[in-house]
Amino acid sequence: MADAPDTRPMTLVQAVNDALDVALSQDPRVLLFGEDVGMGGVFRVSDGLQGKHGEARVFDTPLAEAGIVGYGIGLALAGMRPVAEIQFAGFLYPALDQVLSHLGRYRHRTRGRFTVPMVIRAPYGGGVHTPEQHADSPEAVLTQAPGVKVVIPSDPMRAKGLLLAAIEDPDPVFFLEAIKLYRSVKAEVPSGHYTLELGRARVARAGDAATLVTYGGMVEVCLKAAEVAAREGVELEVIDLETLAPFDAATVMASVEKTGRAVVVYEARKIGGFGAEVAARIAEETVWSLQAPVLRVAGWDAPYPPFSAIEHHYRPDARRVLEAVRKVLAA
């Protein structure tokens, strides 16, 4: 046995592929399906998995999102561990009846008799000049579905561990993968099986001047903003939520109680976005430790723009995050 840590550099796409491969290898109940999944998927996330695990377990479905989710619910009810892919989070909407009416309700309405241990993966978010409708961030809609967990990883190592935890979870989990992160970063990822606990936020960078609360594709934006601030002697704390639902209030509140200032950063439309929930929770639970209003940096009150040349003005960047930081520090 070599003593060297058993890791490999991977993109987020490769890490998700690796997690799926591990899950398919270790549990015969795991099935992987969706549109174009057989040939590897439009982002190559399922590359090679059909060849390795067979067409019965890794398969294409008809082009129908409600069908994909509803079929998966049925598989899960009767003993399987389905992992469904929705090709883009913005294509999820035909399936919202299945998501909101059924996915997270079975355990509750059968008082535990029937459960839906299912994972629905979807690429989400902008930043890579995708066509119209391909860059949506519908996570707030999903957190409104009772009984459904919502997980959004921010790097390859965490994506693999969180996805394996999601597949092993006894309840339904939405697993959103930031398209912007799919190939933009490579990081060391342990091989084989490991899991990271769902329902826990983490301190991605420690600091004392103000707290940036964020998740998914905005974590790297906030870390970049924190680096710039550090050059001016301002140490920002970055909280990566990782799991939006259930919400880890304790980690967020501990940070805000320490810094007294909070900026919530997310790329979905600002109004009614998940950041609104975070800001409200901070107001409810730790308003007396605040020395400035909680600010949000998020998408504008408009559809995610399909206009490539100006699209980058929609998605928050480090500059906009730092503007908000200056405001809360000045208060």
């Binding site: 989710v69 509803g70 079929y71 049925g74 899960a76 009810l77 009767a78």
Partner: peptide, 11 residues
């Protein structure tokens, strides 16, 4: 109806 299809296939 979709759940029924999934339940059916699961067997």
């Amino acid at each position: 109806l979709l759940h029924a299809v999934g339940v059916a296939s699961a067997g």
